[in-house]
Design a protein around this nucleic acid. Structure first.
Lengths: 231, 231
DNA sequence: ATGGATCCAGTGATGGATCCAT
DNA sequence: ATGGATCCATCACTGGATCCAT
């Protein structure tokens, strides 16, 4: 209930959302947390999603943990992007879980990956472990849509990965596949198994996996927008 | 954690399960609760499943809230049956939720209703509201399998109801249909809606519903076993 | 550097049923 | 009496991601 008392209304449009995100630039996470009557954890080992959820609340995101965009009316997905001192992403970015039954049934155009990445608000945050979580500062915000070239590259990766999964060969997939989009485990721990029906109608049990964007991909997004000629 | 300290091991076989259930006969729910370091609520308005869960723990049931039998290894389902002073059931008995996509695809023989009712341990408990929950006594226990006639009657009802659902006419179903097996709402409240795909591949949103046994059916089960000739 | 492993919070579905207006 | 409405606990899954051994 305490969390509701200072809840932020959903932004009315893109401009308001972007303005709010830019107003966070330069602020320390501890300050933003204080606005919400919460405190920053000492580190993120046991609170891995904390920064993302803090920024969601600060911006008035509505879709808490549901399979819809963070800003439903605007169709915009929020992603925080942890960076090092040079402004380079320090982690890959989780996109969505791999829907075993669906992949192989739907084309790229109707895939969850494309849906999630169609329109993203990237919010840069200091991500070096040497900096206490509360002392980390929010950086730039960027409302992004993939360029035609970026979408083609993601589509190529997706079709390669989806093809393998559709054949029932998900166990052969490693994080080494895919130039920009990769598949890696997404579970509480490696003993987790999830039941599903494959394309042949067979029952299978596998470790749950997710699609992730490699850090090289998100680095290129930041490059394009912030390392302009002469900048 | 406290609940684990006095946890009861799963019964090894039918005989042990039945013996344990019969050992509860005559005991007050408050006594059984005390064994588990819990206390009986004043009434069941806000604790509707409390009695069933108390007896589950007392007997060593393993399948907490999962879509498998309560006693997995034995394939036995536990049902508490609230009765009035004459020993007649005061409520219908919930069997399982209506699986919209599945009904119409599978025959009675592979239906969830038949699976749940194939082997049931009925545990009679006083159910009159005039008696405080803690003061209610456990009654007889009965390990039951449907007779051929009972199964045929349930199958007839199921096929009528499943046929209507398969046609996409679930909204026309009322609790009045079915001689022994009926379909009624099963949800937190009447505004709940659940998405599903019907047999035509259409997206539908309906109030979640469940299959229930009418009290007349469970009354007949008790009759057969406890009102023997000369008894 | 990075691929495999892991952690928390919140939602939705299921299982335990009984309540209550008519 | 009973058909429609309702209530709690638990588990599975998703979404938020980062950790860490190599």
């Amino acid at each position: 209930m305490a969390a509701k008392e200072h809840a932020v209304d959903p932004p009315r449009d893109e401009a308001e959302l972007l303005a709010r995100a830019r107003a966070l630039a330069g602020r320390r996470l501890a300050e933003i947390a204080a606005d919400q009557r919460v405190t920053a954890p000492p580190d993120l080992r046991h609170h891995k999603g904390w920064v993302g959820q803090l920024i969601e609340r600060a911006l008035g995101a509505t879709a808490a943990s549901r399979a819809v965009p963070d800003f439903i009316e605007l169709g915009i997905e929020l992603k925080t992007l942890p960076v090092d001192r040079r402004g380079r992403p320090v982690e890959s970015t989780f996109v969505c879980t791999v829907p075993l039954a669906e992949v192989g049934e739907v084309p790229w155009e109707r895939s969850r990956v494309r849906g999630k990445l169609a329109h993203v608000l990237w919010v840069v945050v200091q991500g070096e472990r040497a900096i206490t979580v509360g002392d980390r500062q929010v950086g730039a915000a960027l409302l992004w849509r993939p360029t035609a070239a970026q979408e083609q590259a993601l589509k190529d990766d997706w079709e390669e990965l989806a093809g393998i999964i559709a054949l029932g060969d998900i166990e052969t997939i490693t994080g080494r596949l895919g130039q920009f989009l990769q598949v890696r485990p997404k579970a509480a721990h490696s003993r987790v198994r999830r039941r599903s029906i494959d394309t042949e109608g067979e029952m299978i049990e596998t470790l749950p996996r997710g699609f992730y964007l490699r850090a090289t991909f998100t680095a290129s997004i930041l490059q394009e927008h912030f390392a302009l000629p002469g900048g």
